[in-house]
Simulated scan of single mutants.
Amino acid sequence: MKTGVTQPSVGAVVLTMNDRPDEFPRAMSSLLAQEGIELDVIVVGNGCVPEQTPPEVRTVALPENLGIPEGRNIGAANVKGDYLFFFDNDAHLPDRGALANLAATLDQAPDLAYVQPRITDPDTGATLRRWVPRLRTSDPARPGTVTVMAEGVVMIRRDAYDAAGGFPGRFFLYHEGVDLAWRLWDHGYTGTYAPSVIVHHPATDPARHGTFYRLNARNRVWLARRRLPAALIPANLATWAVLALWRTRGREALRASLAGLKEGLRDDCGAREPMSWRTVARLTRAGRPPIL
């Protein structure tokens, strides 16, 4: 029945490598069950032809694995919607109104570019520190303005995403959400954390990936080189180095981090487009100066 009310249009991007035969169907089922929106879904096979996809979902098969950020960019280019929803294929949405609520949050202010739901482990209900997009993470139920994002489950205004240029494809994995968030802020936008909207995601350890320490270090350096004013780069990298030494356990992890640091300083990081000092001030006032 037509109500005369225009529903928000959402383009959802899901990546797959056909390696989650149980989680992926559940993710897709919860996504397609969303109500109160016009939904368009694209599944990007990163180095594969997507399997287990529902018949109403379109797919893109990439001949090689281009990494998560570039896979998301390709998905965004092939999906329709005023809002883009990036959704990890091992997550699921327990509430059928989740996407409508995220879109309604973005509708509240034209300068609001992205909204981050609260991510919780489906078994324990815990929200990991890295899933809360602010420095003070002790209360994951507290909403508010945020300057970074947990890019695996996030909704972004399409025109803002396009203006900022999307995710940094060359990062392959890790810190691409910080890069995009900083560019969105540099374009005059803001972000918000909406913990009333829950998304379930297993609490896995990112260090399970063999490349974690190297890519984490490399991309942290690339992030600073690409986006920070020159005067802030040493402070940013020194802060990261101290934290990395404190958190890293084991010689292999340390060696991998040092190799990534060397790559980050040596290799091409892409175009350097540092944020303005006005953006530095805005980020600092929002509670997260870009040296942290």
Rank of each mutant, 00 (worst) to 15 (best):
G177W: 15
F172K: 13
F171L: 01
P168I: 10
G177D: 15
F172C: 06
R170P: 00
A164V: 15
R183A: 01
L184I: 14
Y193M: 12
G169C: 01
T190L: 04
T190A: 15
F167E: 04
D186Y: 05
L173W: 15
G165I: 13
G188I: 06
F171Q: 00
F172D: 02
A164M: 02
Y193D: 15
Y174K: 03
Y189K: 06
G169L: 03
L184V: 07
G191E: 12
G169I: 03
R170Q: 14
L184D: 02
F167N: 04
G191H: 01
W185S: 05
P168N: 11
R170H: 11
F172P: 06
H187Y: 09
F171A: 04
E176Y: 02
F172S: 09
E176Q: 07
H187R: 14
W185C: 03
H175E: 09
G166Y: 03
L180M: 05
T190K: 07
G165L: 10
G177K: 10
V178K: 08
W185K: 00
W185E: 03
T190M: 09
Y174N: 12
D179L: 13
R183M: 04
L184P: 11
H175I: 07
G169M: 11
Y193A: 08
L180V: 11
G177Q: 09
W185M: 00
A181P: 12
E176V: 04
L173R: 15
F171M: 04
D179M: 10
A164I: 07
Y193I: 05
V178Q: 07
T192N: 13
H187W: 14
G169A: 14
F167S: 13
G166S: 03
H187M: 10
L180G: 07
G165V: 02
R183E: 00
Y189E: 02
A181I: 13
W185L: 05
